[in-house]
Design a protein around this nucleic acid. Structure first.
Lengths: 150, 150
DNA sequence: CTTGAAATAACATAGGT
DNA sequence: ACCTATGTTATTTCAAG
């Protein structure tokens, strides 16, 4: 991972639709070498994939919220079941296990507040092992970056 | 936004590196029509852009954390300054204004715990108007989705 | 890593249903 | 809106240095 790969990573995070020729010019290498480096980054798993970023509001997803989750117990079986159940909820964009009092934090996106309420009541809090949840609605987003600076 | 556009949105979120021919086949249209729909989604802002997803650990970013922020006062000037300051912090991946007791929640990524400590002490809590912050380190990630289901 | 060449494939556009 | 057809451009692979 030298300076040229850093540039590749940053440029492809900014805009992965650039042509290999543009990328090659930007990093100061030939198109052949540029492509070889990109392929190597893909094969090594540094680049996990390519995605199109959508405007969630234009897709009708007007509610973004964070939900803290505390488990009743912390045994492996309940945690595994929870893990599985959360992976099957399409509203969950992100779910992290935390170091601290609360066990998990998840970021959720829904069409509207009614759907959000139905989601938490019918599909989230029905997962076995959950003690309590605490939801916070997002009012506005100041920063939303697609990639890390490298 | 018909059923075909839904498919396009979902497919491009899954993998934006597919060729237009593959996309056309998957949605059941000719390559020309497929491309025209994609361009229209781009122009209308439904598709905000294209990005490469990176493995943050392989880029040396080992710490992910959430930080709650409470402001001393809630006047417009302080909020604007905060907004500007946060946008200039590359460690901040996401920052949302919340409805509730805490004012903001930000997701941060750093190389290691020392950098995280330095970040909070030297560059975050020095922003004017912040009353207090509360950090939670992420232990592991259960779900991390790049796009919404549509 | 570079250049250059050749094969393949994608893109953009035009004209027609 | 969609399709087919066409010229242009980009990508990919390979060889040689």
């Amino acid at each position: 991972m030298d300076e040229i790969n850093r540039k590749i990573v940053n440029l492809l995070q900014q805009d992965s639709s650039i042509t290999n020729q543009q990328l090659a010019e930007a990093i100061g290498l030939s198109p052949a070498s540029s492509l070889e480096r990109v392929r190597k980054l893909e094969r090594s798993g540094v680049i996990r994939g390519y995605t199109a970023l959508m405007d969630r509001r234009k897709l009708g997803k007007h509610i973004k919220a964070y939900i803290f989750i505390t488990m009743r117990q912390h045994n492996a079986q309940l945690m595994n079941r929870f893990n599985q159940a959360v992976a099957d909820l399409p509203e969950v964009m992100e779910c992290d296990r935390l170091a601290g009092e609360k066990d998990y934090l998840m970021k959720v996106v829904c069409d509207n507040i009614e759907d959000f309420e139905a989601f938490t009541r019918e599909r989230l809090t029905t997962i076995p092992g959950i003690d309590r949840t605490s939801s916070t609605i997002v009012l506005s987003t100041l920063v939303e970056r697609s990639g890390v600076e490298y």
